[in-house]
Each structure stands twice: as structure tokens, then as C-alpha cells.
Amino acid sequence: MKRYTIFVITENFIGILNRITIIFTRRGINIDALTASESRLPGIHRITIEVTATEDTVIQLVNQIEKIIDVIKAFHHEDESVVYQEIALYKIPVSKLDGGLEKIIRQHNAKIIAAEPEFVVLELTGHKEQTQELLEILKEYGLLEFARSGRVAVAKRMLTIDSFVK
């Protein structure tokens, strides 16, 4: 089992996400994370799915996704062949904000993006390992809330989606 990123290029059609997730649920495969956004081209969406599975399974998933009528193209990549980021937000009580914590924030390249009378919100963008590391540390500082996005990713190759859309 390995971590894979599946890219799906699709028409912006109601229900498409449902059709894609059915393919995973039928096989009892968990989606680790999923993001959907517009692509560079109008009317075309891209969906990024992170999944842990064997390559055999991933190939079959991708083939079945591509079979969906409104899907234009689907691919899978190993972590090494994609550039990806996730964003994490941490809510910390103001009372815990001292010199020690400020140093940790700097060391991790996190940012304070909101300050309220009772809490601050930190942001860190990076790979899951990085945001997870900070999470473990902040648990010691009375962490109030934590949220992490799915992966946004682009492939490390020159091929663009235009070649699939004609």
C-alpha cells in the first residue's frame, strides 16, 4: 500500500462527485482527502483525491473513474511525481501565547492570521508530516480547534489538460 494522488478532470456536472465517490465506497476504500476546484479552463473542474492503496487497485479505480461519462481524464501519481500542499489552521487560547510558543511558530514558518480577544489562529501550509508535527506540539498549548485541507496538487510534468479537451 502506498499513498497516491488521483487527478480527475471533469465537466462541471451535478452529481459527478457522487459518481466518483461511489467507485471508492463500492470497494470499501477510504478517501484520505479530496478537493475540488475550477481548472484553468472555463467549465472544467479538477478533483484531487488522496488515497492509500496498492497500485493495482489505484489503476482500476482510475479506469473506472475515467469511464464516468462526464469525466474527461483521470490519472494517478505517486507522491514523488506531484507538487502538493495542504493548509492547516490551529486555534490557540491567547493565554498560552508566550515567548516559547512564538518561537515555535517562527521555527515552523507558521503565521498568525487572526487575533481575537480570546484566541489566535495560526496557519501553516505544507505537507501533512509538517502540519502534523506542529499539531502534536500545539496540543500541549491548549489547542482549541484544528482543521486541515485536502491536498492541492499539480503534476510534475509539462503535459497540460488542454490536450484532453478538444
Partner: peptide
């Protein structure tokens, strides 16, 4: 005809 049947 259906590529998803190959090696399934």
C-alpha cells in the same frame, strides 16, 4: 472495448 475491464 471497455478499458476498465482490462486486468480487472
Amino acid at each position: 472495448l471497455d478499458p476498465s475491464e482490462i486486468n480487472k
